[in-house]
């Protein structure tokens, strides 16, 4: 029951976002692009950091050392 209520809540939120995004996309396409673009820039940058850790861990495992970044 609780999960279902949460599902309903988030469904309502999702529908609201769709409506708002539709309006924003219509009236202010650049604003919409900014929202999406900023999110993407931040997440790509974050993924870049995580990727560096992954490569270093791999490298460390291959050499049998202690993975870096856990300091």
């Amino acid at each position: 029951m609780r999960s279902f209520l949460y599902f309903l809540l988030f469904m309502v939120v999702a529908v609201m976002i769709v409506v708002l995004a539709a309006i924003l996309g219509d009236e202010g396409a650049w604003y919409f692009a900014w929202l999406i673009g900023t999110t993407m820039i931040v997440l790509v940058s974050a993924a870049g950091g995580a990727m560096l850790d992954a490569t270093e861990d791999q490298l460390a495992r291959r050499q049998g050392g202690d993975p870096a970044g856990h300091g």
Binding site: M40, S45, L52
Partner: peptide, 21 residues
């Protein structure tokens, strides 16, 4: 070095996309 190379990586990815924008 650990801090700097991570910061550098994140900054340049952030920057390359932002500059295109």
């Amino acid at each position: 070095v650990d801090l700097a190379k991570r910061s550098f990586r994140m900054a340049v990815l952030f920057g390359v996309l932002a500059t295109i924008g």
